[in-house]
């Protein structure tokens, strides 16, 4: 589904702040793959997401999504088939617009052919209500309230719904539960699991929780210095413990794992 070939990106080239964020990175995801990504700070996880989403153009290499070459496609064209969640729950929604209006904007992806001058119809409204009730947060009864009144967890759940209201070719989750309290994070994670599984969406999820990295999805990827140093799946992954993962990382990266936040995170903790 997603094929990244030899992609590199250097920020501030030719200056003292030169930073090679992606270093001939290659990754191939099969349809329905759900890969978790872990890596130390500055490993290039978010940069890889930005490269896929088209926030910037890669310096070299090609990116294919669903068989199409999207290397030079502008961001807003790519986002028709890419769903994306950020760590900050405030980023994915428009606070001064109502829940219904936010969903309508997200739903534009599906109605690209219909008139830009059409309004939210009764049919759309009923559809949004159905979708919102799946979140089980009572949002379906608050559709005309501004999103700014919702809690961070509710906003992130809404963003998840907006990113998947039209099934994307790939869903990019960038530590989307890291800023939420433990109970809400568990809820949003559960929703993620359900939605991704129900429609077998191809998904990449950055996490800083090692247990999550092994438990969610069917593949675990570790990144370091703009490269993938470990990529495990299937039976090899099933029996793995966090210790195994760290040992394999050290072997692949040539150094010990150095992110305290990740090392200190516990099984249920965040």
């Amino acid at each position: 589904m997603l094929r990244i070939e030899n992609v590199s990106k250097t920020f501030n080239p030719g200056t003292v702040n030169e930073k090679k964020a992606l270093d001939h990175l290659s990754l191939h995801l099969l349809p329905g793959d759900f890969a978790t990504i872990v890596g130390s700070n500055g490993a290039g996880k978010s940069t890889m997401f930005n490269a896929i989403a088209g926030t910037f153009l890669a310096d070299e290499g090609t990116i294919l999504l669903g068989g199409e070459d999207i290397t030079f496609r502008p961001e807003h064209i790519r986002s028709r088939t890419i769903g994306r969640l950020f760590q900050d729950p405030l980023m994915g929604t428009a606070p001064h617009m109502t829940i219904e209006e936010n969903l309508a904007v997200a739903y534009l992806r599906a109605s690209g052919r219909s008139s830009v001058f059409s309004r939210i119809s009764r049919k759309d409204r009923a559809f949004f209500r159905d979708q919102l009730s799946l979140l089980d947060m009572g949002l379906e009864d608050r559709m005309s309230q501004p999103v700014g009144l919702l809690s961070g967890g509710q906003r992130q759940a809404l963003t998840l719904l907006m990113a998947t209201v039209v099934t994307p070719r790939i869903l990019l989750l960038d530590e989307h539960t890291a800023a939420l309290d433990p109970a809400t994070a568990a809820k949003v994670l559960e929703l993620t699991r359900t939605i991704v599984a129900e429609r077998s969406i191809t998904c990449l999820m950055v996490t800083h929780n090692m247990h999550q990295a092994l438990e969610m999805g069917n593949r675990t990827i570790m990144m370091n210095a703009g490269r993938i140093v470990l990529d495990v799946a299937g039976t090899e992954r099933e029996g793995m413990t966090v210790e195994d993962l760290l040992r394999r990382f050290a072997a692949g990266a040539g150094k010990a794992f150095d992110n305290d936040r990740i090392l200190l995170s516990t099984e249920e903790g965040i």
């Binding site: 989403a53 926030t55 502008p74 961001e75 807003h76 064209i77 986002s79 028709r80 890419i82 769903g83 994306r84 950020f86 980023m91 994915g92 929604t93 428009a94 606070p95 001064h96 617009m97 936010n102 904007v105 997200a106 534009l108 992806r109 690209g112 963003t159 907006m162 990113a163």
Partner: peptide, 13 residues
């Protein structure tokens, strides 16, 4: 209202 959201939802800002 939210440029990040617009970028993620297929609208050309």
């Amino acid at each position: 209202d939210s440029l990040a959201m617009v970028r993620a939802s297929s609208i050309n800002p």
